[in-house]
């Protein structure tokens, strides 16, 4: 997989996400003003522009919205959009699962995985 080495820009706007992920917690941003959760995390709510956004611990449960398996990669890997229980849909990888069993609509759960380069990423596995 074409993981980039330690280059993820952990600027203050999103540092709490990465810090929590290191501790095994998967956070998303939600808005106190309109109530909606969004992805990817931002200081301002992308729906109502409110700056009154907060970090919320997500359930880590979702369903596969779409996916594709990179067959030419060595080894092949699955990229996906997963729709979280809380509403937003996010790009991720489906890991620790039979690639041939991946289907749209299947339930998945968070699988926080440290990459060889040290980055910790929010991935998912078939539930």
């Amino acid at each position: 997989m074409s993981i980039l080495s330690n280059t993820l820009p952990h600027h203050p706007e999103v540092q709490p996400f990465w810090s929590a992920l290191e501790e095994g917690r998967f956070l998303i941003k939600g808005c106190r003003s309109c109530g909606r959760a969004h992805w990817y995390p931002r200081a301002h709510c992308p729906f109502c522009t409110s700056a009154d956004t907060e970090w919320r611990e997500a359930s880590g449960r979702g369903t596969i919205y779409s996916y594709s398996i990179m067959r030419q990669a060595k080894p092949p890997y699955a990229i996906a959009y997963v729709t979280l229980e809380e509403g937003p849909t996010m790009m991720t990888n489906i890991v620790d699962s039979d690639l041939e069993a991946i289907r749209i609509g299947k339930p998945v759960e968070i699988a926080i995985r440290r990459q060889p380069d040290g980055d910790v990423l929010p991935m998912f596995k078939l539930a």
Binding site: M1, L8, Y40, I79
Partner: peptide
């Protein structure tokens, strides 16, 4: 802003 939420997952 979208970079860290897509590139690490091998998006092409």
């Amino acid at each position: 802003p979208d970079f860290p939420w897509e590139q690490p997952f091998g998006m092409t």
